[in-house]
């Protein structure tokens, strides 16, 4: 619990910073007053642009962090990440098809809905492929296959795209961003994320038991097929929703659990809550960095995240190799 408090405080601080930073420069007091009253142009900016962006950053980061910790705990592998079951690739495919066909411009939420449909399709496919047992190997193999297929189909759409503007739009969308999102995006993603979080929250005991291996966990009374179902549905709901509203943002689900593992005594159950907070903090920080580094250039969140994530990961591997 000594980790959760500082992480919560960090998240609150970054939320506040995210609210205060933007092209419409205004003082601390003025911004908060405008957020409170909602009056004037600044009030509109605070309430309809910055507030949803900050909330979405928090939700997306928490989803990716929590899903990453759950996947690593379930697969007993620190290299596992939430994209492993193919949901993010399939959600991206749904969004890409929506962008290419023009369905995305039909109404505001057309793109996230298409992405969610892609995610749901992937979950259905993965549950059929992985079979009725409780094993994890079939799950990974099915996930890798579905990821590859969704990636190939995304490339096919880009390949055959007759319209360079659509192709451009697709490429930019896939880089991941939280810019120009509205409360509608929050409203469509939040219920899925809440349902996913509720499912993964209950998995902590099972993940702890899995430290001893699948056989020992089963003998401790853990229902492995149910745990796997919980995990697939929970990760899919959270990552599918996150991808639908923010595009593909990598590295959060991989790096955050890794960074925080030592702080929770490596216990997979405890890592869940810590990773959710850590993921939220990381995405909020990256989204602030995006606005500070190149304010005029619409730097993409996914790009910055990979630029931060990859060196951090290399550093971790380096440290681990030298025996901590």
């Amino acid at each position: 619990m000594k980790v959760l408090l500082p992480l919560s405080a960090l998240c609150a601080l970054l939320m506040l910073a995210s609210l205060l930073i933007g092209p419409a420069g205004a003082g601390l007091g003025g911004s908060l007053a405008a957020l409170w009253s909602g009056e004037g142009a600044l009030g509109l900016v605070m309430r309809e642009i910055r507030a949803p962006r900050a909330v979405l950053g928090l939700l997306v980061g928490a989803s990716l962090g929590l899903s990453g910790a759950a996947m690593q705990g379930y697969l007993r592998n620190p290299l596992a990440e939430p994209g492993l079951i193919g949901v993010s690739a399939s959600a991206a495919l749904g969004a890409v098809i929506a962008l290419q066909t023009g369905f995305a411009t039909a109404f505001v939420l057309a793109l996230p809905i298409a992405a969610l449909a892609g995610a749901v399709l992937a979950v259905g496919l993965i549950l059929i492929m992985a079979g009725p047992g409780g094993g994890s190997l079939a799950l990974i193999l099915a996930g890798v296959a579905i990821s590859a297929l969704a990636g190939a189909l995304t490339s096919l759409v880009l390949n055959l795209s007759p319209n360079p503007f659509a192709a451009n739009e697709i490429v930019f969308w896939m880089m991941g961003s939280l810019a120009d999102r509205s409360w509608l995006h929050v409203a469509i993603a939040a219920p899925f994320m809440a349902a996913g979080a509720a499912m993964l929250w209950g998995a902590g005991r099972g993940l702890d038991a899995l430290t001893l291996g699948e056989d020992a966990a089963a003998s401790l009374g853990i229902d492995l097929p149910r745990l796997r179902l919980r995990l697939v549905l929970g990760v899919a709901a959270m990552v599918g929703a996150a991808t639908a509203v923010a595009g593909a943002i990598g590295f959060v689900g991989l790096v955050v659990p890794h960074l925080l593992r030592g702080a929770v005594g490596a216990r997979p159950g405890r890592l869940l809550a810590a990773s959710a907070l850590g993921g939220a903090a990381l995405v909020l920080a990256a989204d602030i960095a995006v606005r500070l580094i190149l304010p005029g250039r619409d730097l993409k969140l996914g790009v910055v995240m990979a630029l931060i994530g990859a060196p951090v990961f290399l550093h971790l591997i380096w440290r681990q190799r030298r025996g901590r």
């Binding site: 005991r205 430290t211 001893l212 291996g213 020992a216 401790l220 490596a266």
Partner: peptide
């Protein structure tokens, strides 16, 4: 089980406490 698995670097005490899960 025969295969001695301990996936994460948890402390010995934390690992033994897993026996209390049921």
């Amino acid at each position: 089980p025969q295969t001695r698995e301990a996936a994460w670097p948890v402390t010995a005490e934390a690992l033994i406490r897993l026996g209390r899960i049921p």
